[in-house]
Structure formats: C-alpha cells, structure tokens
Design a protein around this nucleic acid. Sequence first.
DNA 1: CTGTTAGCGCATTCAC
DNA 2: GTGAATGCGCTAACAG
Lengths: 342, 342
Amino acid sequence: MINKINKPTIHDIARALKIDSSTVSRALNNSPKVKEDTKKIILAKAEELGYQRNLLASNLRKNITNTIGVVVPRISRHFFSSAIQGIEETAYQAGYNVIICQSLDQLDRERKIVDGLVSNRVDGLLISISMETIDYNHLEVLKRSGVPLVFFDRHCQIPGYSSVIIDDFKGGFDATEHLILKGCKNIVHFSGPLEVEIYKKRFEGYQAALSKYGISFNSEYILSSRLMEKDGYECIEKLLEKGLEIDGLFSSNDLAAIGAMKYLKEQDIKTPEDVAIVGFSNEPVSRVIEPSITTIDQSGFEMGKLAIDLLLEHITNKSIPKKGQTIILESKLIERDSSKRK
Amino acid sequence: MINKINKPTIHDIARALKIDSSTVSRALNNSPKVKEDTKKIILAKAEELGYQRNLLASNLRKNITNTIGVVVPRISRHFFSSAIQGIEETAYQAGYNVIICQSLDQLDRERKIVDGLVSNRVDGLLISISMETIDYNHLEVLKRSGVPLVFFDRHCQIPGYSSVIIDDFKGGFDATEHLILKGCKNIVHFSGPLEVEIYKKRFEGYQAALSKYGISFNSEYILSSRLMEKDGYECIEKLLEKGLEIDGLFSSNDLAAIGAMKYLKEQDIKTPEDVAIVGFSNEPVSRVIEPSITTIDQSGFEMGKLAIDLLLEHITNKSIPKKGQTIILESKLIERDSSKRK
DNA sequence: CTGTTAGCGCATTCAC
DNA sequence: GTGAATGCGCTAACAG
C-alpha cells in the first residue's frame, strides 16, 4: 500500500458535504455571509479530515502574505536577538509572521536571502546589512518591485528606504572623548569596513574628537577587521609587536574589545590601568566578563520596535517615500567603575 | 499617477517577446528543451523587466517548497543558535531554505508556529519543544499530513518521529555523582517541568545517583521552574530561608545556576567552597562568568547537524518510519578547577 | 445565504 | 524546440 497522505483541500470537504467549495472557503474564513449551521458542519468536517489551509494558494490568490522578512548578520549576537524580540512582538500583534534569516556577514548570503524573501513575496523587509555589503544593487532593485524596506542599525543610504539607527558619529566622538579625558594620548580604533556607513561615521566621530583636543591622527592606529573576538586579539598583538604606544582603545564592538583585553591580560598588561577601552554594545554578558570595558549602549529591542513600526506604516500606506525617513537614536555612554584611570 | 508597481510575470515577458509563456517558464528553469538562443533572449528580457519568480505560485504548482521549518524556544540561547548554525549549513548545501521560529517556551506560540509552518507547506520540521509542551496534540496531528518531523534536544515520545538527544539520564547521574564524590550530602536539583522528557530523565539520573550512594531522597530539594536566571536566584533564596542545609546544586541549565550563584555571593556564601554546582550547558560565556560551575556539555552544532541529516533522509525517502529513530549522544562532564572541594 | 465562474503565477502534459 | 491547454488550492466577483 502506497503511503498516500494527500492533504485534504476545500474541495474534499465540499464534496463530502455535497456543497460548493466556495462556501467552504467562506466558512473557513469565518465570513458572516454563511449560515451559522452550515459553518458548524463545515468546521466539523474540516477538523475530521485534518484540513489545513494551503497558505501558498491562499497567499497567491490574495497577493499578500502577511509576512515580513528580517535579515541580520547573526542571530546569536545579543543586539540582534533582542531586536528580533522587539520586531516579533509588534509584528505578531499586527497579525504578521516573521521570517528570520542570518547573513553571517556574507554579502553573497545576504543577496540570496533577500532574493528568496522577495520571491516568497514577503510584504516587507527589515535589514541590518552585512559587513561585506558595500554594493547595494540587490537592495536597490527592490524598489522596482515596490517591497517596503527599513534598515536598522547597519544601514546604507538608499533614497526611498527608511532607517532606524543610532547616532554613530556621536557614539564615536563620545567614546574617543571619554578616553581622552581619562588621559589617553594614543588611542587605537578597531573598526569594521570603513565603507559601511556606521563604521565610517564612528570613525569620523573618532577623528573629530582627536581634532577637538588637538591630538594628531595616526592612521596606524586604525584597524579594520570583522570585529570578532579573535580579530581584536590579533589586531592588538600586531600593534604591540610593532612597538606602538597604546593607552586607549575604542572598539566598534564588544567582541573585538574582549579579544584585545584577553591578549593584554595574557601579556600581563594590566588593563584597565594601562589601556582604557570603550566598545559599542548592549550585551549584558560582555559587561560581566569584562566590566572594565566602558560601553556605548544600543538597545536592540528599541530599535527593532521602531523599525517594525516604520515598516508596518509603509506597508499599510503602500507608500515608498521618495526620500525615506531616518530615525536617529541617541547613543549613551555607560561608564564602568573600573575603567577610571590614575 | 498611481504607484502601479506590478511585478512582472512570465506572461509579461512572453508577451514582450511574442512567444508563449510556457517557453519562458522552461527557459527560466533552464530546461534543455529550449534553444540556447531563445533562452538567452528570454533571460535578457527577464533581467530587463526585473522579473522575479513567484515562489508562491511555483511551489503551489510543484507541491514542494524546499523549505524546512525550525522551531526552538529562544534563538538567543547559545545552544540553539549553534544548533541553527549546524542546521543551516547542511540545509543550504542540500538546496533547502530554513525558516527559524522561536516559541519563547510558550506552548501557545509553539502551536501557532507549527500550524503556520505546515500551512506554508514546509517540507519538514525540526523542533525543540517548549517547556510548556506537555500536550503533544499539535504535533501528533502532523502525522496525518505526512510532514516529516525530527526532534532535537527537547523531544517527546511520539511514535513515528525521530529524535536527536543527549543521554539525559546519564547527564543527571554524572552530575549528581560528581557532586557526591566531592563530598556533598545535601544536593538540590533545579529542574524544568518534570513532565518534559529531558527534565524527567535528568531527575531520574539524579535519583539513581543518590540511591547508588545510599543518600536519602528529599523532595524539598527538587525545584521546578523555567530555569531563567531569576528563577535560580529565587529558588535558592527560598531554600535557604527555609533553613535547609545545602552543599551541592545540580541545575538543569546554566542560567539558573548563575542566578543561584549570584544569590550565594550576595549572601556572602563563598561558592564553590560551600556549594558545588553542576549545570547543563555549552554556553561559553557562562563558563567565563562563572567558571566555578562544572558543566554537562551539549554541542548544539553537532545535534543540529545530526537532526537535519535525519530529516533530509526522511524527506527524500518520503518515509515516516513506524517507530522513529533515536540518536543518543554521550553527555560529558567538564570539570572546572575551581569547583574542587575541601 | 449559496452556487457559478474566473483567475492568482507557474509548471507540465500533450500536440505539432 | 515551441505552443496550447490544464490545474495546483484558494478567493472574489457576480448571480440568484
């Protein structure tokens, strides 16, 4: 006997009841146009047959999916998982499903993911771009298909798309100024790719702070990497091997900062007395692991909330604004006790 | 002018080329039946119009989606995000998309998610059930629809479905024995709901170890909770307020263990000298935060890999085995230096 | 209230 | 090789 588990359709239940499938469809959608009695009978039969609506067909017909796609670099990063938390919360309330995808910071994967999501006709897209995303073509073409898109955190300047971001320039400035005021003269900056907007802005903030206090800029102090823990470790290692003086470090995230800290400890350089560190983060664990790292805080949850709100607005208005709206959140520096210097 | 951004279909490109849409369809699927020349023309026009295949329609027609659904309690937990990593890796290689969903340990959400996934006609399901999942009906009904399902880590006994799990009984036994050998007599056990298979097994392991060493079982030492950090904190607080003697703790995860540890430190009870702790985990950060917690290690990545392999096998064989296969991984205890006693 | 008809976009069988 | 015809499962417009 063949394992013929064909899923029942509305026609199956219509046939069993000797009525028309359109009535079944209406009943299943709880249309007021169908008599309560028949509704009951239909629902019962549906239950009996183990009917489950085929959303592919339904969505195809209705031309909406009630689904929004979310693309982030990695779900394991606390910032992103809390952003997703915020997104899902209001999305579900608004009756939307959420598809979560991670690019792993690979442009290639990001392209495929976005393509797939659009092919699956999501109603909207929320994206925090990968570190490799310097070419925006895969996003720009979306405008032709009219899919609303909102960036959050890692964004890029494409007219017509909105963004929810923090004030990266100010964050970079504050971080650097904080270090300067602590007495640092030789401040290293761990950055992501400088072609990516947020890293560029933070870098500009860094430069501005140096310049304000009349500290000369040394390009050897700028290290661009993927900001993983091992990157921080290796970067600081290289710098020290070069014999460069370092007394302050501004890292564009906490992972790289932790990596650097680890190396310094191994080398018996007792941070934070010797090297003061500031990193971008709202990762609670990293604060516990390295309480000596002062952080520029970003709330993923809040950004997620704002981003989904904006997106839902765009979806319901069917409006892709000409310019796109940008919401900039204040970044705030949270100082740890232990990073006080002499 | 109305914002009429109608997505082009194969008919649009067929019309533009004065050929039939079926040819276009074939070309787009790279069928060998269509001449190379026409293929080129079609592809060019598709590009020009910004055509993107409607996967809803395509999948509906083909009755497969090349998508598998993954349901986990929370993506932010390292165990699950590394499992997802493993799953995605082989899934993508095999040409499958992955939809990630989190139940947040709520049965209600889990039900809706599973329903939605099945309605969207995923080709298979990978699930780690919520802590509230005591009633399996939403999973049992899936058998009628023939959707292959594989459990990993948090599973339940449903004939016909396979599981990838660790040896929870042994884990519970080893943890408890470890504590006993360290000299503990009064061992508390933080558990999840005992109706959930894995917690039950760990508890049984706990009991078996006590019994082996002739230590009497005290039900006051069993605390069932959701195992969040605050749960651990509150549980140990209550126990100590009751005036109960405690010198060992076996927690079913690291979060609750950390919560307990926090409370103990606050109370100036110097763990690990006073209370030895074992928790289930493979969360690297928790080991850094609380190196005094010895752990029973679980590799999410490995379990994810095994689970997806099993699932893909089921999908390609179109076989829902009568009994279901169970892969049991060895659990291993990883001792931390600092948890040595007297 | 219910049935009839049509079609969402695509893939596939059958002709030619 | 290509075109014509059919239907995946569902919803919506239109009758009655």
